[in-house]
Every structure is written in structure tokens, then in C-alpha cells.
């Protein structure tokens, strides 16, 4: 079995340790004897929609993101074709915003996105940042997905299904308790950095989504996630708001 992973703009969209997720996916696949091939695709490169099972897109500093966005919008149709054909995708923070329909800046300018997710983003004043925990139904467990968010933009769903429901933190916009977006096997989220390290359940879910197009339902042998789950639980509990409790 082989997983073909496409890492989009690795040298530009690399904020907050996002690249760690590619390493985590690689390790968790290789520990189960699944071969992994990571292909970096960047400015001006062609994107073959049929060549990959999983796409990863991180967040970047403003300038880098600006450079990547025009190129990504041009690659948009290929990316959409791949997702329509069943490819999995994980887009984080700025990458998530770029895959929405548009971004409206503080001066009212509208920057077009790829339009993969039926969401739009508006610039906000105060950055939404801090530890966050969400409940993701599809994972079939009560264990939350935890992480850290830091974004100025507020994203609103325009028909897209959210990735999860906010337990604590801000999520998409700090108001409607939704976090991230889903479309077919694509996931967009504001939980940045090495998100998958403390959420092995999400990592494996993503691996299964990625492999199912070519291999059908794949049963992943369990790994020893004692450390991962202990950290998930400890961090989750540490930042649980105590307000309103006895």
C-alpha cells in the first residue's frame, strides 16, 4: 500500500510548525507498513489531480500567503477536481481561508479564493488566539480534538458543514460555535501547528480517508498512542474553563 501525499507550498506556507503534520502522517503510515511518498508542489508547478491521495496546505505569514494565493487560485480547478474524485485534504489557518470563496480585507477589498469550501472570511479587529478544543462527530469518539488557534479573520459558513463544534476557544468566528469546514474528504481548520500530534484519532481518520479512494475501506492496525492520548487529555483538562462550575 502506498500513500501519495502532496505538500503544497512547503517553503511559503510553513507557519507555526504546520509542517509537523506531514511528518506525523508519514510516520503513522510507515509504522503500519504503508509506503509514503511526499511531493512538494509550489509556485508555477503543475498539479496533476490524479497523482495524489492527500493534500496538505499550511498557513503562512502575510507576505508569503499573498504570493501563494494567486498561484493557488490558478491551481484551484485541479485541486477541486482531485477532491471531487475523492482525494483527502487538510488545510490549516491561512490555507483554509484561501480555499474558501473569498476573503474580505479591512479596507473592503474582496480577494477571491479557490471556492472549495462554501465559506467566506472577513478581516476582524482583535486576533482570535489561544487554546481550543472541539468535538468532531465523524471521529466516533468523545475524545476532543485540541489545538491552538491564532487568526485575525472571521470565517462564516455559507452552506459548508463545520468540522466540529467548539467546546472552548473561538473557532471559525468566535460567535457561532462552529470550527473549520468539510467538503467531501477535505478538511479546513483553524487549529494550527502540529495539530495531528495531540490528535492521533484525527490523524488516522485522515489516513483512512486518503487511502479509501484507491484501496477501499482500510483497517489501520492500532498503534501505541499512550503518550499522544495522555497529552491530549492533560492539555484538554488544563484549559477547560472553570467558570460556572462549583
Amino acid at each position: 500500500m502506498k500513500l501519495r501525499l502532496c505538500h503544497l507550498y512547503p517553503e511559503l506556507l510553513n507557519l507555526y510548525g504546520d509542517r509537523g503534520n506531514v511528518l506525523i502522517l508519514r510516520r503513522r503510515a510507515e509504522w503500519r507498513g504503508i509506503e509514503v511518498e511526499v511531493t512538494p508542489i509550489s509556485l508555477g508547478d503543475k498539479l496533476d489531480p490524479k497523482a495524489y491521495d492527500l493534500f496538505f496546505l499550511g498557513g503562512g505569514p502575510d507576505q508569503e500567503q499573498g504570493v501563494a494565493s494567486a498561484d493557488l487560485v490558478a491551481k484551484g480547478p485541479w485541486l477541486k477536481e482531485a477532491v471531487e474524485a475523492g482525494a483527502a485534504l487538510l488545510a490549516i489557518c491561512g490555507g483554509y481561508q484561501l480555499l474558501g470563496e473569498y476573503y474580505r480585507t479591512s479596507t473592503g477589498e474582496t480577494l477571491p479564493g479557490v471556492g472549495l469550501f462554501a465559506v467566506y472570511t472577513e478581516a476582524g479587529n482583535k486576533r482570535l488566539k489561544g487554546n481550543i478544543a472541539i468535538q468532531v462527530e465523524e471521529l466516533g469518539t468523545d475524545r476532543p480534538v485540541i489545538g491552538f488557534e491564532n487568526h485575525g479573520g472571521r470565517t462564516f459558513l455559507k452552506g459548508a458543514r463545520p468540522l466540529g463544534r467548539v467546546i472552548y476557544g473561538d473557532g471559525n468566528n468566535g460567535t457561532d460555535q462552529t470550527e473549520g469546514a468539510r467538503y467531501r474528504n477535505a478538511i479546513g481548520t483553524y487549529l494550527h501547528g502540529p495539530l495531528l500530534s495531540k490528535n492521533p484519532h484525527l490523524a488516522d481518520y485522515l489516513l483512512r480517508l486518503a487511502l479509501q479512494r484507491r484501496y477501499g475501506e482500510v483497517e489501520l492496525p492500532p498503534l501505541d498512542d499512550t503518550l499522544e492520548l495522555a497529552v491530549n487529555e492533560a492539555v484538554y483538562r488544563r484549559f477547560l474553563p472553570t467558570k460556572g462550575k462549583w
Binding site: 510553513n14 507555526y16 510548525g17 504546520d18 509542517r19 509537523g20 488566539k129 489561544g130 487554546n131 491552538f148 491564532n150 494550527h192 501547528g193 502540529p194 500530534s197
Partner: peptide, 9 residues
């Protein structure tokens, strides 16, 4: 710094 994601950088 509240965010330790940087460890992975």
C-alpha cells in the same frame, strides 16, 4: 509565548 507550536519549527 503561549503557543508551543514553534518546537516543530
Amino acid at each position: 509565548g503561549r503557543d508551543v507550536s514553534w518546537l516543530w519549527d
